[in-house]
Design a protein around this nucleic acid. Structure first.
Lengths: 235, 235
DNA sequence: AAGTGGTCTAGACCACTTG
DNA sequence: AAGTGGTCTAGACCACTTG
């Protein structure tokens, strides 16, 4: 085997995406079309598509098609702590503003993240965590009802969603991305910051040993927050 | 399709591993054996094994077999990678723009970081790392001369400062903070971004087993970079 | 009804490792 | 030579989406 065929297909697609021939959202040829073009079996074309999807370069939807995903460079790792505990460890007053706690249907993007079908109901909460009365974090969280059936009747004044979920569905793994973004108007108001103040956004998928538990979007005002941590290496 | 067969195989293996029946290094049945046991095709058994391998739960060796991987509890940890290597692994062209490489006196803030007295001389470098010609990172680095005496005569076109320092003073630990900030005018120009574009700033203190080696300030444009990673817990 | 991706089969040949 | 994993094929049926 000189070079694997599925690698040739991957390479071809990567070239198209990198060159900008296929932009974000571009619809790719179907598995059958690719198989025809490359004179390979559908399974081989499929493998190329599957691996690129796992790499975050493509997105696939059953019955619809395969598309170029939005891409940003990525790397690295971090640690998760309870925000209330962190604030209290600093000797500061913690408080929380509970904005929503309800059931909600997932849209397509979120369905992908949570490995659910579009339109399925999940639990949703939206809070603002405050340190000494100043907003420090907007937390939006989508929770699988099966993992935490009583999520909606919890009192998050007593315990953060994170702390509660750790009790009922102990964290096993998580994946997260960290970005610098500009907050929208509503977020600026909630965080009591001016427009054009950069924010740190953490998007985090958490899972217990049973599988996915929740997806959280955490937004911090750049002026009030720094993520810190110790590191290990990859020599 | 009630439940996919490959999921049943995965589940079976996971149960064995979680329960401790199969410990680290345990050799699994071969693809053919699993296929026989589960009355499925080899490709289906294979898929289960492949996915578990990607998840880091198994390890496979051609001609030898499949084994339970060692599972390290990586908690409060963040991984540091060489930016050049990262870019090249994405199949992209790496280039670098070397702006400064000189000796410099530390101010008070930096002296604190490096455990030095104010006014002491250190080595200083300032580079812009580019991915496919687009600026991805401004790297400013202060290096203790005693740890890397030849730092100023290195050619960073050949090797990044990080890679070079890893050679002469192997990293043992590091501390870093991550912030969302607005770049100043000069930085915006270097990164080729407009004003008011949020940036991710990483401030990192590195140390070898001998002590502090360098302090680096890394600035990424928010639109071109996401920090991502998996987390594992130690519950 | 036709097209999409998701799963699965029963084979095949290959590269690699060990007896 | 026999066993392992790696790649590949040419089919099949399924679930889902759209006309």
């Amino acid at each position: 085997m000189v070079q694997a065929k599925f690698l040739a297909v991957k390479q071809h697609i990567l070239t198209k995406v990198d060159s900008g021939d296929w932009l974000e959202g571009h619809k790719l040829p179907s598995e059958n079309q690719l198989a025809a073009v490359f004179s390979c079996s559908r399974m081989t074309a499929r493998r190329a598509l599957t691996e690129l999807t796992e790499q975050g370069i493509l997105q696939r939807f059953q019955g619809i098609g395969t598309f170029v995903a939005s891409h940003k460079a990525q790397s690295s790792i971090l640690l998760i702590r309870d925000i209330r505990q962190e604030i209290e460890e600093r000797g500061h007053a913690y408080s929380v503003n509970i904005l929503m706690q309800t059931e909600r249907q997932v849209d397509r993007a979120l369905a992908e993240w949570l490995f659910l079908n579009e339109g399925v109901s999940v639990f949703y909460s939206k809070l603002v965590h405050l340190e000494e009365g100043m907003p420090l974090q907007i937390e939006e969280r989508y929770v699988l009802p099966s993992r935490a059936p009583h999520y909606l009747i919890q009192n998050f004044n007593q315990m953060t969603p994170h702390a509660y979920l750790c009790q009922v569905a102990p964290l096993a793994t998580a994946e997260q991305t960290i970005e610098a973004i500009l907050a929208n108007e509503e977020q600026c108001a909630l965080l009591q910051i001016s427009t054009f103040e950069p924010c740190l956004q953490i998007s985090r998928l958490t899972a217990s040993s049973q599988g996915v538990v929740s997806f959280a979007k955490l937004l911090y005002p750049g002026t009030r927050f720094k993520l810190g941590g110790q590191l290990v290496f990859d020599n």
